[in-house]
Design a protein around this nucleic acid. Structure first.
Lengths: 144, 144
DNA sequence: GTAACTGCAAAATATTTGCATCCTT
DNA sequence: AAGGATGCAAATATTTTGCAGTTAC
């Protein structure tokens, strides 16, 4: 997928650098969303903490990743699909946080249902965050 | 509502202190959710920053307030209604964050719709967070 | 070669912890 | 009086900023 990563960066007018490539790769490989801390851990000192902050910020601005609301004071990030463009995200799917393993999933196929708001409220964006036990964790010990 | 505040604290086996009373009062008076920073600002040095941290934590544990997921790294808190008990929250309503005035509303009467999850996922809790323009801000200049 | 990106140092901010003191019951 | 709650000091952790050196194009 090296070429895909290249392409994503080029499409967004970003120069292809080691850290950007590595971080994008992490997102592609990850089954769930990642927090700053996860990335820092996974990259074990390969690049500076500050670079991670700046890279994530850039990616969000460009619409390469989006952030997922959380209940604690952290920010989770996940890859946007396809047609997110700058400032105009279409990540209109639900997110699921597992209480057990703490992984956050983007449920691409679970659409956010329409809700009817009281008079006077105009919705621009909606997020739905579910939590509970995920697929993996609910499976009774599988490994031999 | 002094007596109501008293009652809430007593019911939760918490001693009635100045800071707890004041913070609970803020929540009751507030039209929206509050962040740690809001409380600190509003109380302008009346009590210690650390006390606020501890008070909020206690309130969440006791189920007096609940927290609302946000997209930035902050935590918003709002009063739980009625029958929240320790560790078992029923704040099953949508939240609305206004992009204009930044107020967060608990939309008590907007229920969270059921979503069907993929096989293997077991939902325990769900949150829906909407954003856009709120009632007040969408009203064209009203004041004379 | 130039503009963009990174790493380092340091500042600013936010959160947690320990302990002595004070307040509620 | 006893236990819990607060305030203060200090330790940690997190995020931001400025700048000089490096890298991509």
């Amino acid at each position: 997928m090296k070429s895909e990563i290249n392409e994503i960066l080029k499409r967004n007018e970003l120069s292809v650098t080691a850290s950007r490539t590595a971080i994008l790769e992490m997102f592609q490989k990850s089954s769930g969303a990642l927090a700053h801390a996860d990335i820092e851990k996974q990259s074990s000192d390969k690049f500076d903490r500050v670079t991670i902050y700046r890279t994530l910020q850039t990616f969000v601005e460009k619409g390469i990743i989006h952030n997922i609301p959380t209940t604690d004071n952290s920010i989770l990030y996940a890859l946007c699909k396809d047609d997110c463009t700058q400032g105009h995200h279409h990540d209109n799917h639900a997110h699921f946080i597992c209480d057990e393993c703490d992984v956050t999933y983007c449920l691409e196929h679970v659409a956010i249902p329409e809700v009817s708001l009281p008079e006077g409220f105009n919705k621009i964006r909606s997020d739905i965050v579910l939590s509970g036990i995920c697929k993996n964790c609910s499976q009774p010990l599988k490994k031999p």
